[in-house]
Simulated scan of single mutants.
Amino acid sequence: MAGQNVITSMLDDLSKEQPIATALCIGQNIDHHASIQWQYFNVTDFLSLPFTQRYDLGFVLFDTEEMQDINETQKAQLLVKLRDLMAKRIVVVSKLDDEKLLRSLGFTQLIDKTTHDSNFALWQFNILTYKHVPDWFNSKFWANPENWNKFRW
C-alpha cells in the first residue's frame, strides 16, 4: 500500500516536469494512476514487441518475483530497447546489484543507496537531460559561409 503511494507521488512529480499521457510497465501491472494510459508487458512479450509507438514513460520493476528469472543479457536488451525505441523517459526500480548495468546504459540514480537500509535503488533515464550540450556545439565554431573569402587559415 505504501509502495503505491510512493509510485503515485513520483508519477505526479514526473508529470509536472513533462506531461505523461501514455506509459508502459514491465515487471508488475500498475494501472492505478487514472490520468495515464498504461500498458503492461512481461519480459518475453516486450522483447518480441515490434515498434509501433513511443511512450512518454517506461516503468520497469526488476525487484519482483516475475523478474527474478531473467539474466543480465535480457535485462540489458530490455533496457536498451526501452531507452532507444519505446520510451522518452524511463524509471527503473532495481536491486543494488544492477548498479553497474544501469550506469553503463546512461541511467542516473534518483535515490541514494546510502540513505536507506533496503536492497533497492531508483534510477531514471531522460533523453532530454541525458547529455549537456557542450559550448563548441554551435555555429560559432563551424564553417560559416558568410566568412568564406574573408579569413585564411
Rank of each mutant, 00 (worst) to 15 (best):
M1P: 04
S9Y: 07
M10E: 01
D12P: 01
K16C: 04
E17C: 01
I20P: 02
A21M: 13
A21C: 11
I26G: 00
G27K: 05
Q28Y: 13
D31L: 10
I36R: 11
Q37V: 11
Y40S: 05
F41D: 07
N42W: 05
T44R: 14
D45H: 08
L47E: 08
S48L: 15
F51N: 08
F51H: 13
T52S: 15
Q53D: 04
D56P: 10
L57M: 09
F59K: 01
F62S: 09
D63L: 09
E66V: 11
D69R: 09
D69E: 10
D69M: 06
I70H: 00
I70Y: 03
I70M: 08
N71L: 00
T73W: 01
K75G: 00
A76H: 08
L78G: 08
L78D: 12
K81N: 15
R83N: 14
M86W: 12
A87G: 07
A87K: 12
S94N: 05
K95Q: 10
K95F: 06
D97R: 09
L102R: 02
R103W: 00
F107E: 04
F107G: 02
T108E: 07
I111F: 04
T115W: 06
T115M: 12
N119H: 10
F120E: 04
W123I: 01
N126E: 05
I127F: 01
T129L: 01
K131Y: 04
K131I: 07
H132F: 06
H132K: 11
V133K: 12
P134V: 00
F137M: 14
F137Q: 12
N138C: 13
N138D: 11
N138E: 04
K140F: 07
F141G: 00
N144Q: 15
N144K: 14
E146R: 14
K150W: 06
W153C: 05
